[in-house]
Structure formats: C-alpha cells, structure tokens
Amino acid sequence: MKMNVNVAVIGGGPAGLAAALECRKNGIDNILVIERDKQLGGILNQCIHPGFGLHVFGEELTGPEYAQRYIDMLSDTDIKTLTDTMVLSLTPQKVIRAVNTSLGVVEIHSKAVILAMGCRERTRGMLRIPGTRPAGIYTAGTAQRLVNIEGLMPGKNTVILGSGDIGLIMARRMTLEGAKVSGVYEIMPKSGGLKRNIVQCLNDFGIPLHLSKTAVEIHGRERIEGITVAAVDENLSPIKGTEEYVECDTLLLSVGLIPENELSRGAGILIDPKTKGPVCESGFETSVPGIFACGNVYKVYDLVDNVTKDSVLAGRYAAEYIRSKSE
C-alpha cells in the first residue's frame, strides 16, 4: 500500500503530537502521525505521577492527563494517525516504510518528515558492570511500565543505581507499592535529577542518596541477591578498599538516556556525537532538508513542557518548509 502526505510525524508522544498540531495550525493539511504503541501519548502514559504542565498549562497534571490534552486537541483536527504501527525505514527522499497488522507494509511518501521517536535508557550492558547476569535488573523506565501499566512488582528490596529523574520517581513509586528502597547510588558528586524530585521522592520517604558511589559487581545466580558498591575518585574510578555489599532482590538503573536515532542514521542524517541527536543548524531541521527533529530524539530534555515548546517550533518550521516548496 502507498500513501502520499504533506507531513509525516514519526512518534506520537508529546513531541510528535505538539509538532503535528502546530503544523496543522499553520495551514498544512494531510498530516500523518505514526505511533508504534496502541495508544498515542508515548512514555507519558506510564508517568502517572504529577508534575507535568506547570509551564504549558499553568497547572499540575499527571503524564496521562498531559498526553490526553494533546490527544483531544488532535482528535478535533483532520490529522490522521496510524497507531500500533512501526516505522521500518526512512530514506533521504522522505519515503517511509512502516508496518502494522491490518495494512501490512505501507510506503509513505512525504513532503516533510518530523522525527519524534524519543529516547531509550542506558542499560547494564553499556555500563559494563561486572558480575553475574540474573533476573531482577531493570532500567527504571521498564520497571515503571511493569508497575504502572502491567500491575506487576519487579521485586521487594530495591537498590537504584543512578539518580536520573526516572530513578527518583521509581524510588517513590516502589516505596508506595510496598517495596523497600534501601538507597540510590550516584557515581557523580551531585545528582542529575530535578531538585524537586530529590525532595519529594527521596527525602520525603527517608531514602538515602549516596553520592560518588557506584556498583562494581552484581551477585546472584537466578535472581539478583546483592551488589557491591564502591566510592569513586575524581576520575570516577572505584577506590580499592571502599567496597561494601548491599543486599537487594531488584536493581533499577537510571543512568542516562540516549536519543533513538537509528532511523535518522538510515536516512543519512548527521548525528552529533555528543548529544547523540541530529545536528540541526537552525529551526530543528536536520542535515537532510525537509526532515525535522524534536523532543528527546533531538536531545534529552528534563521537562515535557520544554519538549512541547520546542516541538511547536519544529512544527512551525516544517510548515514553513512545505509552504516554501509549494510556492
């Protein structure tokens, strides 16, 4: 099957939705949003805690509430959506191949493309923490999905490595669901998480934050039984003799996010080795003309409100691009 659209937005999370809506507001029609999940909203759907929307809406919303505002706005427009649909490839000529259960492989020819695929979490494998490979080690976001969407508890006695925001949020979440969170270990001398999350998710629950400490070994054969942590020096190298054993049955990792740019690479888009996002000279346009990037695929943001603000601009520039091409 073939489709022709003016703008194809890859990813129906906060970035993609805001960009699509802004494109439409600027007079562009025939817009398509492609989302791999069954619902629009992206990762916000599993972020059931409050703290979203203070800047954009002037009120505090949960993740699903924030997403719903955009889903509602979208349903008031003629913007088309394909959910439960995975994009397989993107070419520099802006041809997208996507697949789903009802249409099979769809070839989408688009005048402009907005990349809004979000990011992924760094894993235990990337950290290269030595030790065994038992069950019970999750990235914080995966644990968040298990708890908030699937209704499953990853474990009872949790240690969190890294103090990124998702890790802090999950420290509180696991505690509220009855698990013990014995501590958060952060390799850096200060946390990368938001101050309010440290206060509301750790301090309010008496969960200790151990700075300049990291995991140096994982123990346990079938299920994780504990980790060895050690203090690190100014080069972030573990200091011999400072090792201590911390018992746990679950280890959550919150050690950084990486923009998901595999599709972008396939389209020949230049990637900044530092941010791991597309190099955008101006107006969120990538090195391939007519392909724009916004949200966490462009760079990792702290606040969804800022994702929305920037994505609105990306949508506006994409609309301008289409207009300039049709003149």
Binding site: P134, A135, E150, L152, M153, K156, E222
Partner: peptide
C-alpha cells in the same frame, strides 16, 4: 500468569508473584 514468567527458568522470576 505474566507474573510466572522467568528469565531462564528456576528462581529467575521476572517479577513478584502477586499483582499490584
């Protein structure tokens, strides 16, 4: 049940047995 799924059998359970 989803809570019975293991990583590699035995005691390598992915999650707790009880649903939330």
């Amino acid at each position: 049940p989803m809570s019975e799924v293991t990583k590699f059998g035995g005691a390598s359970r992915m999650t707790e047995k009880e649903m939330i």
